[in-house]
């Protein structure tokens, strides 16, 4: 019979921490990332608000942030994290780097989703005399909603992976539990339980995203 040193309460707490970190960073990350994705699409050459300068600034900045592995980003921006949440350890301290990590990722995914929209529809919008804002709001976004949901699903799953490293700054969560108890204390049960929980999370989120996208697309 296998035994474990982790209590059910500890395990539940870890799940709650993971959900909290994913939820918060997804929410704030989307608030930043979606506008970034839109900006990338509308300012690119040939876009409805073409701006060489803006595009030339946003595009490389995103690439720079995206080229950092999360574990490095996490420690590299500790001073910034401290500035924002007054601490560099704990769940809240993990959320700041998670947001910095996920926002550009969401930006890129949103950009890809919006670029998939049939250019003919944008031409029709322009022929109707729509303002750039109207083009985005009435044409670009509604046509991309299904794809945007799938993009956010991908981002969420990416976030779950990243939260596993949040333990480095004492962020908690199931990933942390697996490393501290499972790996460092040879508690196989915790490792297995964590893996199971993560699989259920990812499967659940992906299925939910797929169903939602299909329902919204209707075509």
């Amino acid at each position: 019979m296998m035994s474990t040193t982790v209590t059910t309460d500890q395990f539940m707490q870890a799940i709650m921490d993971t959900l909290y970190m994913v939820g918060m960073s997804l929410f704030v990350g989307s608030l930043i990332g979606i506008p970034i994705g839109i900006l990338l699409v509308v300012t690119r050459p040939g876009g409805v608000l073409e701006s060489k300068m803006l595009y030339a600034i946003i595009n490389p900045v995103i690439n720079i942030v995206r080229s950092l592995p999360f574990i490095i980003l996490l420690v590299a921006i500790i001073p910034f994290t401290r500035l924002i949440v007054q601490t560099s350890i704990g769940t809240s301290a993990a959320i700041v780097p998670l947001i910095i990590y996920i926002a550009p990722y969401i930006g890129r995914l949103v950009e890809n989703s919006l670029l998939e929209v049939n250019p003919g529809i944008l031409e029709a919008a322009e022929a109707m005399g729509a303002t750039p804002f109207q083009v985005i709001w009435y044409f670009l976004l509604p046509e991309a909603v299904g794809s945007l949901i799938l993009s956010l699903t991908t981002a969420t799953i990416g976030l779950i992976g990243a939260t596993a490293m949040a333990g480095t700054v004492g962020g908690g969560g199931v990933g942390d539990l697996a490393i501290v108890y499972g790996y460092q204390r040879f508690d196989t049960v915790v490792v297995i339980a964590t893996v199971v929980v993560l699989i259920i999370f990812v499967q659940g989120i992906q299925s939910f995203g797929n169903i939602l996208a299909r329902k919204i697309r209707r075509y």
């Binding site: 049939n118 029709a124 303002t131 697309r217």
Partner: peptide
Amino acid sequence: RAAKKNIGMIFQHFNLLES
């Protein structure tokens, strides 16, 4: 933009909003 509202346009591939 105001002038364009006086000119309707239809397309080979219709360009309707699928959503």
